[in-house]
Structures are given as C-alpha cells and as structure tokens.
C-alpha cells in the first residue's frame, strides 16, 4: 500500500483521465491527491500543494516548464529527482508505455514510489482502453445507422422488402470483399449526389 501521508499532484490537461487517476490513487489509500488542470500559475499551485510526487502526461508540453520550475522555485531546496532513475526498468517501461512521467522528492522510498506509479499506469491504461472502446462503439453505431439508411433507399427505389434490401447489400459486400457499412456508405453517398 502506498504511504497515506504522501501528497500526489496529477498534472493533466485531460480532465476525464485526471479524474480516473485521482480516484485510483485515493482508492489505494492516498488521501492528498491534487489535480492541476493547466499550466496557468503552475508554480504557485505547486508551492501551495507541495507535492511529494508529481505525475504528468509524458507528452505534455508542460513537462519542460515543470523542469524549469524545479530550478527557479524553492522546490530546489527539496531536490526533485525524476522517477526515471534506472533502478527499476520494468516499472519505468510500463510508465513510458502508458504515457506517464513522474517526479519525486529525493529520498522517498522506491517501493512507495513504485506503488503510486503502478496505480497511475493502471489508470492511464484503463483510460486509453475506455477511449478505444468508445471510439469503436461510436463507429459501430454510425455503421448501423448508415446501413439502415441504405436499406431504406433500396426499398424505395427497387420496391423490395427490408429483408431483400439487406440481402442485396450483403451480397454486394461479399462479392467485393468489402464491409457492409462501406457498401451502404457508397450507396448513400451516390444517392446524395444524384439527389
């Protein structure tokens, strides 16, 4: 279990992901989790929060600013070392794969840091999976809609039943080795052009 007395700051421009990470850290027993949603006044926020660990999106443009702040602020007095310290290759690689970078106060026990990173990695990955599923669900819904539309057009134009219209689309798709939705989309597009 991570040490409950630690304060973790999550810097993330993506509020949905930040919420998921925050919830995960809290569930693992960390009471002080602060989400910093943007870079406006980042230095002041960091000084206020005084985090032991900062978790940030690896590709965030704010990372370079963060490193500058470590140099100019009093955070320098409590040296902040990046978690990427080569002592635990597996954890580091998992973090980079998930798109996470983290900074920790010097002297923090590695296993404490590791448990925090592990939670963040799980949550980042869960969020990425969620987004993928959402995108897939959206495209599936769109596909279903366009097939419905194509069926309707065929029924009207050829005077066939819904089942026959569906059969026509399916046969065409199979003959051409393409997806049903693609055939339906082509039909809808050409209909719109002719309209």
């Amino acid at each position: 279990m991570p040490n409950t007395e630690l304060t973790v700051a999550v810097i993330d421009l993506n509020p949905a992901r930040a919420a998921i990470v925050e919830e995960g850290l809290r569930a693992s027993g960390i009471r002080e989790v602060v989400v910093i949603p943007d870079t406006a006044g980042l230095l002041a926020r960091l000084q206020e929060v005084d985090p032991d660990v900062v978790v940030i999106d690896l590709d965030s443009p704010s990372r370079d600013l963060l490193e500058q702040l470590f140099h100019v602020s009093r955070l320098v007095e409590r040296p902040v070392a990046m978690f990427v310290d080569r002592s635990d290759a597996a954890t580091m690689e998992a973090a980079v794969d998930a798109g996470i970078s983290a900074y920790v106060v010097d002297g923090l026990k590695p296993e404490r840091v590791k448990s925090i990173i592990d939670v963040a990695v799980l949550r980042f990955n869960a969020f990425a999976k969620l987004q993928r599923e959402l995108t897939e669900a959206r495209s599936e819904l769109a596909a279903r809609k366009v097939v419905e539309r194509a069926k309707g057009l065929l029924m009207k134009a050829k005077g066939v039943t819904e089942e026959e219209a569906y059969g026509l689309l399916r046969r065409k798709a199979m003959n051409e080795g393409r997806k049903l939705a693609e055939i339906a989309q082509a039909l809808v597009t050409s209909f719109e052009l002719l309209e």
Binding site: D59, D64, V84, R86, S101
Partner: peptide, 15 residues
C-alpha cells in the same frame, strides 16, 4: 518527440 524532456527520457530509458 514533442519536447526535450520527453526525448531525453526516452534516450536514457533506451526507447
């Protein structure tokens, strides 16, 4: 890579 810190980390990690 989008930024210098990210590039440095990926270099140090061997990515």
């Amino acid at each position: 890579e989008p930024s210098w810190a990210t590039l440095r980390d990926k270099l140090l990690l061997g990515i």
